[in-house]
Design a protein around this nucleic acid. Structure first.
Length: 416
DNA sequence: TCTGGGGTCCTAGGACCC
DNA sequence: TCTGGGGTCCTAGGACCC
């Protein structure tokens, strides 16, 4: 079976979306995409990293993920704009609705990337390249931003293709083009070769995707275990996953935050854990799931991370129960180092409809569930801060912490 | 690095059992 | 205990993605 797969990637997504919005709202007549600019977090809250960059900013050597401090050193005139996640969701949704006009199968890989299956659609819409141009132009005309489209016979190659020259370009990377278009690239450009793997590969004398493709899989296994086989297959353009019709069930739900100051006392740390647990549990209840595993993570002021987890005796979605577990975990794990970052996550999720309640706990469960439900409803109607725990009063801390995506995206998997 | 926040997947090592 | 080996389960940490 020969597939035709599209991978759509919004060019500098956050930055393009903000630029488009500003032009449409006539906030400014400057197009952020044409000047050195970035979307960046708030340094005073210690969130100061580059989230997206314009092409002119890239020319200064500015990279996604680097600190704003270092970005500004590379380009003193850099324009820095805070992120507007609600806007980003809207733009993403608008793009997906365009795809859904034509494609029964839209796999939303992330907020700014989709896979589409064009197999057997040529007799309706023309050749893949023709239709990709039509789609790209339609998005630009109706929504105001540009995308790259990669076309191939599987998801991996389509994704690699969309990463070639940018912006506003269409590329193919069919199996017979792999040698010519992919093998000369640095191995770091291959999907699933990150910094650590890249460093190890370089020590083995493997610098290009072609060298990786032609190296001995057993040697790779010896150094990288199963990941070695994976990247060897990817370097050869082999991947088997199909475009998924809908989002897979989430495996876990977590929120974490970098605190604007170092936390040195457990009372403050636990308040922050509560604010994180509140959002985690709201999302958990919203997805109609219950969790058996609770984990916390702590990053200290000197960037040393640790985590700790426990299985509950029974799955739950009750805020106070999960918070209790988080506190126990924190007390066991914290080594009294000043804390920069805290996280709460639940996993081992099952559908709530299969809940089995122990007889002893039934009253308690009913009471807590009724409370959580009422709080969720009030927050939904009057806003998230309309009802907060008394312990947050005068604490100077946010009563709810962590982003809550309005829609759950299918999540990224290394298997393409 | 003046270094975010949301995820998934894999593995080494320890506990426990036979 | 001057002792084996194998299987399974759990945990913490680290790799990767956007």
């Amino acid at each position: 079976m020969q597939y035709t797969i599209f991978h759509i990637d919004v060019n500098s997504a956050y930055l393009s979306w903000e630029a488009t919005y500003r032009l449409q709202q006539q906030v400014s007549c400057v197009d952020l995409r044409t000047i050195p600019s970035i979307i960046g977090g708030d340094e005073s809250k210690r969130h100061g990293i580059v989230l997206a960059k314009s092409i002119p900013a890239k020319k200064y050597g500015i990279k996604t993920g680097e600190s704003l401090f270092s970005a500004r050193q590379k380009c003193p005139s850099l324009v820095i704009v805070p992120p507007n996640y609600k806007l980003f969701m809207k733009c993403s949704d608008a793009m997906v609705s365009i795809f859904k006009e034509y494609f029964p199968l839209v796999e939303r890989y992330s907020v700014d990337e989709c896979f589409l299956d064009y197999t057997n659609m040529s007799h309706h819409f023309g050749s893949p390249i023709q239709f990709a141009h039509y789609l790209k132009n339609k998005i630009q005309k109706e929504l105001g931003f540009t995308v790259n489209i990669g076309i191939s016979s599987n998801k991996l190659l389509a994704k690699m293709a969309s990463d070639f020259e940018k912006p506003n370009k269409i590329h193919t990377l069919f199996p017979d083009e792999i040698q010519e278009k992919m093998w000369s690239l640095p191995v770091r450009d291959l999907f699933m070769v990150g910094r650590a793997t890249n460093n190890k590969l370089m020590k083995l004398g493997i610098y290009t995707i072609g060298q990786l493709a032609n190296s001995d899989p057993d040697l790779l296994y010896a150094h990288f275990k199963s990941h070695g086989y994976l990247i060897h297959a990817y370097a050869n353009g082999t991947a088997t996953a199909i475009v998924k019709p809908c989002s897979p069930e989430a495996k876990g739900i977590g929120n974490s935050t970098t605190i604007s100051f170092d936390v040195t006392d457990s009372r403050t740390a636990k308040l922050i854990l509560l604010s994180l647990t509140e959002t985690v549990c709201m999302r958990l209840r919203d997805s109609n799931m219950i969790a058996k595993m609770v984990s916390i993570s702590i990053k200290s002021h000197d960037f040393v991370s640790l985590s700790h987890q426990m299985n509950l005796t029974e799955s739950t979605d009750i805020t106070s129960n999960i918070y209790k577990a988080a506190c126990t975990l924190f007390d066991e794990a914290w080594n009294k180092e000043p804390i920069r970052h805290l996280g709460v996550r639940v996993s081992s999720l099952t559908s709530k409809s299969y809940t089995q309640l122990s007889l002893f706990d039934f009253d308690n469960y009913e009471k807590h569930t009724a409370l959580d439900e009422s709080i969720d409803k009030i927050r939904l109607r009057y806003g998230n801060t309309s009802i907060i725990r008394a312990s947050f009063l005068y604490s100077g801390l946010r009563p709810l912490n962590g982003g809550m995506p309005e829609e759950n995206y299918p999540l990224m998997s290394s298997l393409l």
